[in-house]
Design a protein around this nucleic acid. Structure first.
Length: 416
DNA sequence: TCTGGGGTCCTAGGACCC
DNA sequence: TCTGGGGTCCTAGGACCC
């Protein structure tokens, strides 16, 4: 059996852990620039706050019901996630961290619900975060079990352990809510009169493969109880690494864009070094405001290569600026920019170039020192001079909660 | 006035090889 | 007049996930 532990309303729950006043109150967490809603407590969901809703459109609801609003605090959520995962690992031998708030658990030795209840209680006690656990023979079914646990149980645990129970649930489970079926596929299936998970499970396999590729076929098998997505608990390095942001105001000025792109590129290089990878390609893109329907749109992007795989900030930042220069058109104002590095490979086995002119050993030492100082003294204590210094207005986070677990200055104070 | 960020996998088609 | 067969690699675009 495979278990899926999924944190309930994760970001909202994180805010609650250090702010007990919020218990039983409506809480929402906003995206970057306080733009739209990306997490809601159950109370907020009941008030009709939709996922992804732009904040300016729900201002009335927020003030009418006194909803507690937070800017995203990824330092906090990331750290809380690590605590939850470590607690799970203390109970289960094999844990696959699937996302910031979910993990698949090897439950091959699963005996009864008591074990799941114990795990759930332990996570709550050690971290303050409520989780739900779904248990089933495959990942896809565990996803459905987790959904049931959240929606219909009081203890937050649900097990699918036999075929007739599975069919009973699949019969009422809308196909577009199944893991791997998005809006497009949902619509397409509905056109062919497949509306429930059970109808999908019983559909003709050849037809599924033809219309929904091998992934559709795998999903169908998983619903039948055959494992197609095995547990993968090992560390997997990323193949693409991206840093991108929308700005709170539109930006036209090239040198300001250059500062921003430089810090994005520097961040990508840092992430590469963190996972001990190098890249051979870098893309830079710009975007005008896609919601301004009346103004002209421009979404340029470009990809440049490195002859030698690299994770050197100097090299990556300077190539990013070259790319930016090529795509920047001063006619437009931009709302978003991003840097992506791809074609990653382990830094331990890079293919060097005959014509390389860079002293890579020396550069590596510089990067190492820079990363070490920044990890000891605080993020961006040392950075390239080309980086972005106008953070204050470029990105908006007005309702930021303290970084309770990652900054000494923000540690929770308790009055006795 | 105001609308997120970071990923993966698959497929088709083009360019190339012998 | 007639114009093969069997591959690989890369990219763009589309779907999905959280």
């Amino acid at each position: 059996m495979i278990g899926l532990a999924d944190c309930n309303n994760f970001y909202a729950s994180c805010e609650r852990v250090f702010n007990p006043r919020l218990k039983n109150e409506a809480v929402i967490v906003l995206s970057n620039n306080d733009g739209c809603v990306i997490a809601r407590s159950n109370e907020a969901k009941k008030l009709g706050v939709r996922m992804g809703a732009p904040v300016f459109k729900i201002k009335d609801t927020i003030s009418k019901y006194n909803i507690n609003v937070f800017s995203t605090n990824f330092a906090l959520y990331g750290d809380m996630s690590e605590r939850v995962m470590n607690t799970l690992k203390s109970e289960v031998d094999e844990v696959e961290i699937y996302s910031i708030d979910e993990a698949f658990l090897n439950f091959s030795d699963f005996i009864d619900t008591d074990r799941a209840i114990h795990i759930k209680k332990k996570v709550k006690q050690w971290t303050g975060i409520p989780v739900s656990i779904g248990i089933a023979p495959t990942k896809s079914l565990a996803k459905i079990a987790n959904h049931m646990a959240k929606k219909y149980t009081s203890n937050g645990i649900f097990i699918i352990n036999n075929d007739s129970l599975a069919d009973q649930i699949l019969k009422k489970f809308p196909i577009e809510e199944v893991w791997g079926i998005g809006r497009r596929f949902g619509k397409k299936l509905s056109y062919f009169n497949i509306k429930t998970a059970l109808e999908f499970k019983n559909a003709n396999s050849k037809w599924i493969k033809k219309n929904f590729s091998v992934n559709g076929l795998r999903l169908q098998k998983e619903l039948k109880g055959e494992i197609c997505y095995p547990l993968e608990s090992g560390y997997k390095s990323k193949k693409n690494i991206c840093t991108s942001r929308s700005f709170s105001k539109e930006i036209k000025n090239f040198s300001h864009l250059s500062e921003i792109v430089s810090s994005f590129a520097n961040n990508c290089a840092y992430k590469l070094r963190k996972q001990k990878s190098c890249c051979t390609k870098i893309s830079v893109f710009l975007m005008t405001n896609r919601f301004k329907l009346n103004s002209p749109q421009y979404f340029p992007s470009i990809t440049l290569n490195f002859d030698t795989p690299t994770n050197d900030s100097f090299e990556i930042v300077s190539r990013a600026n070259k790319a930016l220069f090529k795509i920047h058109n001063p006619k437009y104002s931009y709302k978003k920019a991003g840097v992506v590095v791809h074609n990653t490979s382990p830094e331990s086995s890079i293919q060097t170039s005959l014509f390389d002119t860079i002293d890579r050993k020396k550069r590596q030492q510089i990067m190492k020192s820079m990363d070490l100082l920044n990890s000891k003294m605080g993020k961006n204590k040392i950075h390239l001079a080309s980086g972005n210094f106008n953070r204050k207005w470029t990105f908006k986070r007005e309702k930021l909660s303290p970084c309770y677990t990652t900054m000494f200055s923000d540690i929770l104070k308790i009055q006795l």
